[in-house]
Design a protein around this nucleic acid. Structure first.
Length: 200
DNA sequence: CTCTTGATCTTCT
DNA sequence: GAAGATCAAGAGC
C-alpha cells in the first residue's frame, strides 16, 4: 500500500517565561490554549484547560495547604501534579502569586511531537485518544509525581507560544460536583482532540 | 450510541 | 468510611 504522508510538524513559538503565569488565573487559562507543551520533547498543542482558584470549593486548595497541594500555595510558574482516583496523574500550572493557590488544569493536547513515544506509553494507535483527557496526557508525556514542583520554563518541561490564532470557547468544568456552574473550562472550538466537545 | 463498574491514592468526615 | 479535577472495558439498546 502507498505510504501515507505524515502531517507537517508545526513550528515552535518563542519559549514562555515563568512570568507568563504571574497574573490572574482567568487570564492565563484562555491564553494557554494554542500553546505547545513538551516534556523531554514529547507533547503537543494545548486544546483544553480548566481554571481553579482557592476561593471556590472545587479547587484542591479551598481548604488550605496539605502535603498534596502545597505547590499550589507557592510561586507561579511551577507544575502541580496530583494522583487522581488513585490511578492517574493530572498536571496543573500554578498561577498568580505565592499564597494565591490558583492553578490551571491541563485537560487535553493535540499531539504534535513524539507521537511514536506517546503511542508506546498509551498502548494505543488512535492519535485522537492519546491526550484527550487529563489522565491520558500525563501518561502520554510520562508525567508523574516526579514532575511535581518542577519549573515550567526549564528542562524537562518546555512551553512555546502560539504561532497561529485560535478560536477559544468557554464552558462549565467537567467531572466536578462542587461549583459546577462556573464557566472556567476553555478550549479550541470544534477541536477533535478535546476530552469532550463543548456544547453549542 | 449510552450506562455501569472497577481500579485504589489522598483527603475529609 | 466515603468521595473525588478519571479512564477503560463490558453490557445493553
Amino acid at each position: 500500500m502507498a505510504p501515507k504522508a505524515n502531517p507537517p510538524t508545526p513550528r515552535l513559538g518563542k519559549p514562555l517565561k515563568r512570568g507568563f503565569f504571574a497574573r490572574s488565573v482567568h487570564e492565563v487559562a484562555p491564553d494557554l490554549i494554542g500553546v505547545t507543551m513538551l516534556v523531554d520533547g514529547v507533547g503537543g498543542i494545548i486544546v483544553e484547560v480548566e481554571a481553579y482558584h482557592h476561593t471556590e470549593p472545587a479547587a484542591h486548595s479551598y481548604n488550605g495547604p496539605t502535603p498534596r497541594n502545597q505547590v499550589m500555595f507557592g510561586p507561579p510558574g511551577f507544575a502541580y501534579v496530583y494522583r487522581s482516583y488513585g490511578i492517574h496523574w493530572c498536571v496543573n500550572f500554578v498561577c498568580e502569586e505565592a499564597g494565591s493557590a490558583s492553578a490551571v488544569l491541563i485537560r487535553a493536547l493535540e499531539p504534535t511531537h513524539g507521537i511514536a513515544a506517546m503511542r508506546r506509553r498509551r498502548h494505543l494507535d488512535d492519535v485522537h485518544a492519546l491526550c484527550s483527557g487529563p489522565g491520558k496526557l500525563t501518561e502520554a508525556l510520562g508525567i508523574t509525581i516526579a514532575h511535581n514542583a518542577l519549573p515550567l520554563d526549564r528542562s524537562p518541561i518546555a512551553l512555546h507560544a502560539r504561532t497561529a490564532d485560535v478560536e477559544v470557547v468557554a464552558g462549565i468544568r467537567i467531572g466536578i460536583t462542587k461549583a459546577v456552574k462556573l464557566p472556567w473550562r476553555y478550549g479550541v472550538k470544534g477541536s477533535k482532540f478535546l476530552s469532550k466537545p463543548f456544547p453549542k
